[in-house]
């Protein structure tokens, strides 16, 4: 990690990569394992050996729920846990599909997009959301 990156901090680097259109996740040089969420030192080993690598964005739904919300407030929406191919799990949303259709085990693909919910609602900071991958 360069001193510029050190100054920025772990989360801010992740967000900067997303603004530049790249889905990057840290990997530990010592363990070879990917680490998410972003950190300054490697969890478990405590080493300062994490660097960002671009990931495939391919994942599988581990857990999912359709949060019920009245239509006038935007209707029901999905929240889910996705196991990425690289071996880490992240919370996200699967978009552009009826939340009741989303099931454990379905394949999904990451997209970097501006969103109308959460911390970065309607801002210049895009986040990672997912869409279902159509069965071949």
């Amino acid at each position: 990690m360069s001193s510029d990156q050190e100054a920025l901090g772990a989360d801010a680097q992740f967000f900067q990569h997303l603004r530049e259109g790249r889905f990057m996740i840290q990997r530990s040089e010592g363990t070879g394992q990917f680490v998410f969420y972003p950190r300054m030192i490697c969890p478990k080993t405590g080493k300062k050996d994490l660097s960002f690598e671009e990931v495939s964005g391919r994942g599988v739904i581990y857990g999912t729920t359709a949060v019920q919300r009245p239509e006038k407030y935007g209707g029901n929406y999905n929240l889910c846990l996705i196991d990425l191919e690289e071996g880490v799990r992240m919370l996200s949303r699967v978009v552009d599909v009826d939340p009741d259709q989303i099931q454990i085990g379905m394949k999904v693909q990451a997209h970097i997009e501006s969103v109308d919910f959460g911390t970065f609602k309607n801002s210049d900071q895009p986040v990672v959301v997912f869409r279902l991958v159509e069965a071949a």
Binding site: D11, G63, T65, V67, Y77, L91, I104, G118, T119, K121
Partner: peptide, 21 residues
């Protein structure tokens, strides 16, 4: 942080996913 980004108003959705699993 990452719950906030996705509008995950804890704790309900987490327990829902656990029940589903």
């Amino acid at each position: 942080t990452y719950d906030g980004i996705y509008g995950n108003d804890q704790p309900l959705p987490g327990y829902a996913m656990a029940m589903g699993r």
